[in-house]
Amino acid sequence: MKPARQDIEIILEQYPRHPQHLINLLQDVQAEYSYISAEHLTLICDHVGVPVTQAWSVATFYKSFSLEPRGEHEIKVCLGTTCHLKGGQRLVEACERNLGVARGQTTDDLKFTLDTVKCVGACALAPVVMVDEDYLGEANMVILKKRLEQV
């Protein structure tokens, strides 16, 4: 697990009270807590001075925000054009079968979240999978399984 989480107040105080910092704050809270809880959303809104409706529309519009807890590890299968041509789609489906979750979902033990990403810029090694911050090039289910056993 990650080290002790930073207090929400410390995150909030890093930004001036201005609506322009709404997205920055949501990103920091997402990174720290792996999701944005209802309580945190309200605190952020109070801090930057926007109605909860605006924060809600922002948090549901952008793909990098999650309103539910995510898994300890994130598996992101790249579905950029090159990865698509080289079988990225088949790879996501294999992951779905192996982990027993659909893309965008988290395993019941909160260990893994499976997601897709639109190109990570490592097209020369397609298909690519990211496990947390690591890239796996020329990936297939065999390589990925081995990697997942290590985490």
Binding site: K118, C119, G121
Partner: peptide, 8 residues
């Protein structure tokens, strides 16, 4: 915000 897939 380089979003085009296949461009880096």
């Amino acid at each position: 915000e380089e979003g085009d897939p296949g461009a880096f």
